[in-house]
Amino acid sequence: MEKQSAFNIHPMDQFIIDPMLTGDSLEWYSFTNQALWMLISLVSISFVFIYGSRKHQLVPGRLQSIAELMYFFIRDMIIDIAGQEGLRYFPYIFTLFILILFGNVLGLLPYSFTYTSHIAVTGFLALSVFIAVTIIGFVKNGIGFLSLFWISSAPLALRPILLIIEVISYFVRPVSHSIRLAGNMMAGHAVIKVFAGFAGALGLGAIAPILAITAVYGLEMLVVVIQAYVFTILTCVYLNDALHPGH
């Protein structure tokens, strides 16, 4: 089973779910490295949002500024995209955003585990969004929600074709939504790991891969934030479709 290579690089090892307390057996309730990093993320979020703004400062300090920035960034985004009615769903969308953002950012720490790099996690989140948005759409608009697929602004002859395209694109949403995030996270971390493997094997020549790692790391800093943003903004767009299906 084991592949032998000169460099002995295992870029995918960092994604292995490792039961930490129950030995080797992985039951559905086993506490894993993934669960540990979710816990660390929870602690970090509490630190920034609860400890950081404990003084309720009128003129915010550093941590409170960060917390306020994120809070009002998401709030304004929802209002911009889904309108005032979208604010009802702000707690859910904000939870989603900080869950992904902190997972992504903490995943950049050496020896950490990136729970957002797992398709099970992002798939679950994307499916939740998909199901929630579909339910909201039907509850708010009744059967009128289906007008989302019947593009009334297009010529009548084109509408059946557009209907097929729209229906397919609607059901592909959770797939693209989840794979985009997990794929980005996994690829970046795998690339860093590959370069790190080179660095370990090259001795003095390791300076080149280390420089490359530094560059990729800088890029990843950007990517992790952008992907959290993209996931959230797409959620808002889907929510807007559910609230106002007539475009």
Binding site: P19, Y29, M38, H56, Y71, Y92, Y115, V121
Partner: peptide, 26 residues
Amino acid sequence: PNQIFWLVVFCVVLFAIVKFFIIPRM
């Protein structure tokens, strides 16, 4: 199953924190 179990636990706890601590404070 393990991942989704912990994710659900995490989501529920995080949502509670957001709903009952972060939003009122902000």
